[in-house]
Write a protein that binds this DNA or RNA. Structure first.
Lengths: 340, 340
DNA sequence: AGATTGCTGATTGACGTCTGTCATTCCGAT
DNA sequence: ATCGGAATGACAGACGTCAATCAGCAATCT
């Protein structure tokens, strides 16, 4: 009744334990026909190697390393907390989770850090993806060293990584658009998108998604050209004030990137009825704003689920099991389904 | 640099391995001062027992058993699929996940099944909670046998279980109410709730939540008395048709329980503009309806996340680690953030 | 013939923990 | 001083796998 061991496999295949081991661990030096017999016995018995026993024997523990932007960017603070919490929990499962700081929004600095990794330093690394030649090269170097790379939050050039764990940003944008559309009922409206930079792929994707939904025919909704604020609150304050003064008809605001603190502060002083506001990432600030009715919806990428799934995937990759691409959905938070 | 072993602890405490083991596994027969020295060494070194090695040695594998309603109820079909998928995956982690069939909506039958469990049959059971004297007694019997019980989807009487893994149904109802409110803009409206039975706690909670949000002052929204359909499509068809004929002003429908197939079929034949529709649980049918624009929003309890977290919690309980009550949030699905 | 090569089997000692046995030490009570 | 029991130590054999070594055997080459 209990699971078969490699001994059972060897016996079933009519070879010695040594040979079964040589086949299982691809040590070579085994005749073709023996390989086949062992493989046949393996699927015959449904043998699954006991990973824990193997790890014990190898004295292996998984080392996963995350490169996270430092600084007081609220979302990354949340992300970091989630990783740290998991690090503490997973220690008992032989997972060592390291966090390395990198400057925010700086693909070259990240690339430089990655190129400092040596073979054996870790079993898998997780980074925030972005499109950058230097980064692509650094990731390719890691792949050559057989260190897999998982991208989080925002994807990187597709050829150069193992797995993307994160939301579909076009879908997230469409979702924001749908909420804005829903809130306008059948009436007209003008929606202003605010983003960090059009160069950032996730921001571009979200804008694209919102555009798709808002400009479907049969609606009287207008999506204004986005204002770019480089994640800086002073620029946001200035540009948004100018826009609102120039266009008093704005009925909706879609904040695509960071810098929500400044936006929320401005909303507090706005006359009612204020525009319908959708923004991204649940943080202490956006949560408070939602509770205070300063904004209407938050679209979150569920960092905790994201990290949990990323670690599962990393372990699967390290164990050379088939890693099913995990799915993270953009979550809509209204005042009433806030966590905790 | 590597994690300390029990040998290290024993050495640090100045006792033999045997004594350290006796303390760790509460075998008794150890002098008070030795217990203290060992415990001190344990936290001094931050010792964590290697669970995998321990399980290996004990030849232990976790047996978790779920009691799930059989029948073609769409949501439970999804739930069952999720459990089966996890069962296959977790096998490699020494988790045996069993599924036992029980008749749907029958707390007494479930209680009877539970009372058939004997000590040692499994390490933890998961059930769909409900309020029933027989069920409470059966769960208490299991507790006495030191078999923890986790409730899913809907909670049971609080004293008689270890952990509830599932959404807050009041919050789910509030969320539905918020969506309906949002879709009405500032205009008036009449919302019709449809539910299986008021006796069912999750249904009651959801209705309560929706009521809270829809009847807040300053709105011109009216929540009609719910129609009860006992999860049966013929009753739904009949009662809903009667309601719609009697009250042509209905602008919103909140379907709280099961029986959505019949509702969706009726919506297909409804003249536009149809009411704004919110319902629960993402299944093949509700998904198709969302894509076909027959309904507007689905509130889902994320069975996959729920089961993943339930298993994590079950394992933590079995390992006698502190089990943090996991959090599952009701998720809002619009057309644009559907998974996969 | 002897040497080389390729494949196979047998064996061993880890890894960290559990469980059991047996012998020893210590301490308090007699 | 003796005895009993409690506390402790020492040790061994598992659990399933890894990793390494050594020996044996047949087929092939020189």
């Amino acid at each position: 009744m209990r699971n078969p061991t490699l001994h059972d496999v060897a016996r079933a295949a009519g070879v010695s334990y040594s040979t079964a081991d040589r086949v299982l661990n691809r040590r070579g030096g085994v005749a073709e026909k023996s390989v086949l017999r062992v493989q046949h016995a393996i699927d015959e018995l449904g043998y699954q190697r006991d990973i824990h026993a193997a790890n014990l024997s190898r004295r292996r523990s998984y080392v996963f390393r995350f490169y996270l932007p430092q600084g007081d960017h609220s979302f990354f603070t949340v992300l970091r907390q989630v990783v740290e919490a998991q690090a503490a929990q997973r220690l008992a499962e032989r997972m060592q989770i390291q966090i390395h700081d990198v400057p925010p929004l700086d693909a070259d600095a990240l690339a430089a850090e990655l190129s400092r990794i040596e073979a054996g330093d870790c079993d898998c690394v997780g980074i925030i993806g972005s499109d950058s030649g230097a980064l692509t090269a650094a990731v390719e170097r890691l792949q050559a060293m057989r260190i897999p790379v998982v991208t989080l939050v925002s994807d990187a050039a597709v050829e150069a990584r193992m797995l993307y764990v994160g939301i579909d940003n076009v879908a997230a944008g469409r979702t924001a658009g749908r909420l804005l559309r829903l809130a306008h009922g059948r009436g007209p409206g003008r929606v202003l998108p605010i983003l960090g930079a059009l160069a950032s792929r996730d921001h571009r994707d979200r804008l694209k998604g919102a555009h798709e939904v808002l400009t479907e025919p049969g609606r009287h909704l207008h999506l204004l050209p986005p204002i770019e604020v480089q994640d800086r609150s002073d620029i946001l304050r200035q540009k948004l004030a100018a826009m609102l003064a120039a266009d008093p008809q704005i009925t909706g605001i879609y904040s695509i990137g960071a810098g929500n603190r400044a936006l929320i502060a401005m909303l507090r002083d706005m006359p009612t009825p204020r525009p319908f506001v959708v923004l991204h990432e649940l943080t202490a600030h956006t949560r408070a704003a939602l509770e205070a009715d300063l904004i209407d919806a938050v679209i979150d990428q569920n960092p905790d689920v994201e990290i949990t799934l990323a670690l599962q995937a990393m372990k699967a990759i390290a164990d050379e099991l088939p890693a099913t691409p995990p799915e993270v959905n953009p979550t809509i938070y209204l005042r009433d389904n806030l966590p905790r």
